[in-house]
Design a protein around this nucleic acid. Structure first.
Lengths: 236, 236
DNA sequence: AATTTGTTATGATATAAATCATTATAAATC
DNA sequence: GATTTATAATGATTTATATCATAACAAATT
């Protein structure tokens, strides 16, 4: 749903945003960006864009949380990234691919800032600093993806679940009470899709980890009792 | 081994090389690049650089073949890419990581062109066209890595072996006789490490595929009899 | 040509993972 | 608040995968 009450990037609190960091040098430039920005509002579990669709925009999260995923056979999707405030997504569409290679879904109520692809390409051409930093950002993402690939190809089920929980903590942190998934953003199925499992396996391993006093579960909320033990599971 | 008989990029036949494509606009620039380029020669199965080492260079393959891999637990490595003439590697070191996140080993006799990291950063700053295209290249690599991640998380052993063979064909092609691994570049263990298996599993599945008239094996050489059937295995 | 070494092939066995069936619990709808 | 629907938990079963032991073969060395 289009949202017209858009704030100017200058006033935005997401200091990690690429636009905020690299594209507000002059007043003309920031006016230009403000004019070309459009904002959409999504409630929880709405599809933002779908794999296979024509790439027409580059997106940033103003507020909220989003999962980025790839569709697999038999509804077995793979979640690629969990992202939140200030994060860029849909940027793989910058490659020669004409179509989105991923889908994105809101997992909380969310506000998304977007730019037309053509405008963003112009912005890149006129802002070498942005291009340069985006290039470095991609290099870093590649490192992380390749680390994940290596991990998932050697981890057993228990290690994969630990990895999934640590990814959730990495993306969204812990509450004061050391809880994750507090707003019930992700189902067991989602957690499974972070690391290539099924929901059944996740449930069982969570029960094991509860047994081992590493965590407690209360419906979808997971309370971490011993973070170090959780980390030890993946540091073989 | 340092190799002093270096050819000028202008005369190089690797038209897919980033330097060849984007950095030879002026005579001063190409002279500058020639001066700052150094070339090393490697025989088969030599370590070019190792994960954890300080990143000091960005590298391109002048001729030969290289495997790029990550070290895992218990010697279970994961091969990330198979590369050849004109391909860039070590570029993930451009991220904020100080150390190489990957290792690289020659799998044939190989000539490698390298630039000091500091020089390459200067080159990027002074050649926005290079930075821009490198950024697009990374976006494309991310797409491919994520596709691989999704595939490996849902494929069974047979599908993984088919995927590994197709990756080898994609990287190095087929001979006139439809053979891969003709120069015995990769062992069964290497093929396993492309897709997170062990050498035993690869051997068994190759025997199955032989049974199904999809391929023939003669020691390390694999002759593809029915490429379409091989592709069908991974297109579930 | 014989010996050593490394890799590949094959079958048997043990282990881990995935699936299925059922129950319990929570959330949504009426 | 009762009913429906969706999700999570648990145990039993089937299937797939990983490991082990051994044999066959190829390459390198003497």
């Amino acid at each position: 749903m289009r949202f017209n009450n858009k704030i100017n990037c200058i006033d935005c609190e997401n200091t990690n945003c690429f636009i905020k960091k690299h594209c507000l040098e002059s007043i003309e430039q920031s006016d230009n960006i403000h004019e070309n920005k459009f904002i959409n509002r999504y409630t929880k579990n709405q599809l933002i864009f779908m794999e296979g669709n024509f790439v027409d925009s580059i997106n940033f999260i103003q507020s909220g949380r989003v999962k980025v995923f790839k569709k697999g056979a038999f509804g077995k999707d793979q979640i690629i990234r969990l992202i939140s405030n200030g994060d860029i997504f849909g940027h793989r569409g910058l490659s020669d691919a004409e179509k989105f290679s991923i889908s994105a879904t809101s997992i909380t109520d969310t506000l998304i800032c977007s730019f037309d692809k053509a405008f963003f390409f112009k912005l890149l051409k006129s802002t070498p600093e942005l291009t340069y930093n985006l290039m470095l950002y991609f290099a870093n993402e590649l490192n992380q993806e390749e680390k994940k690939l290596r991990d998932l190809s050697i981890f057993n089920v228990r290690e994969k679940v630990a990895k999934a929980l640590l990814m959730m903590i990495d993306a969204y942190g812990l509450t004061k009470e050391n809880e994750i998934n507090h707003a019930h953003e992700l189902s067991r199925q989602d957690i499974a899709e972070l690391v290539g499992l099924n929901s059944n396996q996740v449930t069982k391993i969570l029960a094991d980890l509860k047994e081992d006093n590493i965590l407690e579960t209360d419906n979808k909320t997971i309370k971490i009792i011993n973070l170090n033990s959780l980390k030890e599971i993946v540091n073989i």
